[in-house]
Amino acid sequence: MYGISRIDDETHRTHAWRVSLRRRGKMLVKNFPDRKFKGKGKALQAAKAHRDALLQRYPPLSRVEFAKVKRRNNKSGVTGVCLVCCKYYLADGTEKRLWYWEASWPTSPGQHINQRFSCAIHGKQRAFEMACQARRRGLRQVRGVFWAAERGELSH
């Protein structure tokens, strides 16, 4: 069940359902002990009600919002746009390098599109601008809600 797990620890005599969701960097956790709720089934009902209330109050990120989150390792200043170097060797052994600005964006879950723009053809600044523009266009096509893992059943 999405956001709900079972705790059965005989050593500490702990038997409960745990609701645990992460929303925008904050963990939302609450336990529903069997003893307090007078049984395993009633504790589960309370946990589901609490989880559903949390989902209403704190909806998950949209896939576009998630795709726009800036990571710590971002060096370009634009999420989803990075400078890429491709090395290759000529027949005589000479090493050549081609530089590209690459834009990427999600399509369906687990899939994404990359589009490269050559610095040699367009110039470094123009290639960067083209990559940013391609990413903006790509993100306009992204739909749905982001789930870190495959969403479980929301059975009631």
Rank of each mutant, 00 (worst) to 15 (best):
R6E: 14
R6I: 08
I7Q: 06
D9K: 10
H12C: 02
R13S: 13
H15M: 10
W17D: 05
R18C: 05
R18F: 00
R18D: 00
V19I: 04
V19R: 08
S20C: 13
L21D: 02
L21Y: 06
L21S: 02
R22I: 14
R23F: 10
R24N: 12
G25K: 06
K26S: 09
L28S: 03
L28Y: 12
K30A: 04
N31Q: 12
F32A: 06
R35I: 11
K36C: 00
K36I: 10
F37V: 04
G39N: 04
G39R: 02
G41P: 00
G41Q: 14
G41R: 14
A46E: 13
A47N: 07
R51P: 02
A53V: 02
A53S: 13
Q56E: 15
Q56D: 13
Y58E: 09
Y58M: 00
P60L: 07
S62P: 07
S62R: 03
F66E: 14
F66C: 11
F66R: 15
F66G: 07
V69P: 01
N73S: 14
N73W: 10
N73D: 15
N74F: 03
K75I: 08
K75L: 13
S76H: 05
G77S: 04
G77T: 06
V78A: 04
T79D: 06
V81K: 06
C82Y: 15
L83E: 15
L83D: 10
V84Q: 15
V84T: 12
V84Y: 07
C85D: 10
C85Q: 14
C86R: 15
Y89Q: 11
L90W: 05
A91Q: 12
D92G: 02
G93F: 07
T94H: 13
T94W: 11
T94Y: 11
E95D: 01
E95G: 08
K96C: 14
R97H: 11
L98G: 00
L98C: 08
L98M: 09
W99M: 10
E102A: 09
E102P: 00
S104N: 12
S104V: 00
S104Q: 13
W105T: 01
P106G: 07
T107K: 03
P109W: 02
Q111T: 05
Q111H: 12
H112R: 13
I113E: 14
I113L: 11
N114M: 08
Q115M: 09
Q115Y: 01
R116Y: 01
S118C: 03
C119P: 01
A120R: 12
A120H: 08
H122M: 04
Q125A: 15
A127V: 05
A127D: 10
E129T: 04
E129W: 03
E129P: 01
Q133C: 08
Q133E: 15
A134I: 04
R135Y: 06
R135I: 09
R136W: 02
R136G: 09
R137F: 07
G138Y: 03
L139F: 06
R140F: 00
R140E: 15
R140K: 15
Q141G: 04
Q141L: 11
Q141I: 01
R143I: 06
R143N: 08
G144T: 09
G144Q: 09
V145W: 11
V145S: 04
W147D: 08
W147P: 00
W147I: 00
A149L: 11
E153V: 13
E153I: 09
E153H: 08
E153T: 11
L154F: 03
H156T: 10
H156V: 12
